[in-house]
Design a binder for these strands. Structure first.
Lengths: 325, 325
DNA sequence: TTGAAAGCGCTAACAG
DNA sequence: CTGTTAGCGCTTTCAA
């Protein structure tokens, strides 16, 4: 029996005789044989592997949201007989790693996480014509495939809640504004404050709060303002944890003296504290969806048909209360 | 100029003329050429990739220790012009993924994390003769390469401290005992208690505490004992966080009414609380060392020469105090 | 010091 | 339905 027939039998081509196929499958199983994926990729020009290049910042990989998304992706891909790999690289090596991945064709497509407003990785992938899905949007002229939660509507949910509770002096803790989500959330914040006829005091808007420590310090800084805000929106969960901790440590009654709404789940860290939250539901499904999108893209679907915006929701908790007088 | 010469020039073979080499390198750089790693691997039988197969349990990938180790590995490997990939798989697919990796030869070696007392993954790799380094030990007759921190001495440090503070009623919260570290730590605990002539009350030894929730509940359970212990050792940091939280919520004065020593760093979670800790220092260096070990193994070094035991240290904090009367 | 040819393990086009 | 032939892009003998 020839290589060819074996190959066809194993790859489920329709033209092989059922009895032959059975024999081949049986023999393969007994011998524990499995096609060498390298040789296959070389021949067929496809690796059946999707990748994520991930600079190892503990703050991110430790992010349970990211983990859920990746979990959803890998699960969906297992079903599609594809593999997912994460390439952890040093931050300095991020762009070079993209180039290497693309030139080396070790993966058929990439997911780009943590998008920047101006993102050189995405610019490169576009230029190279390499399939990718951006997890988060970016500023770009050419159409590209992306998956994101609606930053604007999320902020509107949060701010709407605070306004309806009577708050007028509202602060914002932002992640670095080069990050697209932080930028969009801040812009939405400013827009909605303006619509409400309120002034967004610059002293109440603190940037670069991306982890617990910086969130903690930012909240301390707000507390020291002579006329401090009565409510604060935090645009990411890690600094949200820090901010809430700062309030606890300062003996502030959260939800009374100061209200807080955090974007992202903090439940597993702040046990027993019911934080009002903007939540991105269905993280695993989101991951599954992104892998489907990437597969479609590889199959040749146009990028402009692969743009998906999911809606965040407000989970009411105890940390957003009426404005004190 | 032939393929052959180009290949030799790029791979730094000594026999090529210096001028030729310069020309080739120049041309390659201009064209942005880089050898196709698939084809290379196929020809040479080596992929220059090392891997970690990782079932996505948030509790683990979120572990900052693991992140540091992986960071150290990838950094060291970048220097050695090797690549590291993490393959996140569903737990059910863990062993099949090992088989696939081995048969597929997509990686030259593997690091096996979270070793079990009886570990089928390691048994399989041994049987298959595939190069691997175990991150943590296991029960096995044949020699294998491993890297671990000394579980016994760590427990001795913790227990020694508590004994010298006068404690006699000491509890232990353990991760599932199939996990090698949990098993060794518990055995050391029992041995040292026996040496000290103390009884290890079964009601004070609670198992399967591997995350915050279970750690929290276990500590609650201890608190409900009619004659509860005066000190507790927790063998992993996640349940350590839960356990400490339980004490805080119960209004127990930690370090006075109840002492706690946790194995693993909890500083980034329990901000502002100075927990007495058994620490595994130099996580990044440990990662670097493990990748070196794996590389040596691939080069043909004997596994029995690649076994490394590092010493944990006790970081004195405020949660271990004298035994109350 | 360079080149020609064989082959790594597979798939795909083309005959039979 | 099955086999033969020709590559995929590289490295590596072996000759020149």
């Amino acid at each position: 029996m020839s290589k060819t027939t074996v190959s066809r039998a194993l790859n489920g081509y329709p033209e092989v005789n059922d009895k032959t196929r059975q024999r081949v499958l049986e023999a393969a199983r007994e011998a524990g044989y499995e096609a060498n994926p390298m040789a296959r990729s070389l021949a067929v020009g496809r690796s059946n592997v999707l990748g994520i290049i991930y600079p190892l910042l503990p703050a991110d990989l430790g992010d349970s949201m990211f983990l859920d998304v990746v979990g959803g992706m890998s699960e969906a891909l297992e079903a599609a007989r594809m593999n997912l790999i994460i390439a952890p690289v040093s931050q300095a090596n991020e762009l070079p790693s993209y180039e290497q991945m693309v030139r080396g064709k070790r993966v058929d497509g990439l997911v780009v996480s943590r998008t920047m407003v101006h993102d050189e990785r995405i610019a490169y992938l576009c230029k190279a014509g390499f399939p990718f899905v951006a997890h988060g949007r970016t500023r770009l002229d050419t159409p590209y495939a992306w998956f994101d939660y609606d930053n604007e509507s999320g902020i509107r949910l949060a701010l709407g809640r605070l306004l309806s509770l009577g708050h007028q002096r509202i602060g914002l803790l932002s992640a670095p504004l080069q990050m697209n989500f932080a930028c969009q959330r801040k812009e939405s914040f400013l827009a909605m404050m303006a619509e409400a006829g309120l002034r967004a005091d610059p002293r109440w808007m603190i940037g670069d709060t991306i982890d617990r420590r910086s969130g903690y310090q930012a909240m301390q800084q707000l507390l020291e303002c002579t006329d401090r805000p009565t409510a604060v929106v935090v645009d990411n969960h890690l600094s949200g944890v820090g901010a809430v901790r700062a309030l606890m440590d300062a003996g502030i009654e959260i939800g009374k003296e100061m209200s807080v709404i955090v974007w992202g789940s903090v439940a597993d860290t702040l046990v027993g504290l019911d934080v009002t939250t903007i939540d991105q539901p269905d993280a695993r499904r989101a991951g599954a969806r992104m892998s489907q999108m990437l597969l479609s893209l590889i199959e040749g679907a146009p990028a402009e048909s692969l743009q998906e915006l999911w809606q965040p929701v407000l989970l009411a908790g105890a940390t957003a209360g009426s404005c004190p007088h």
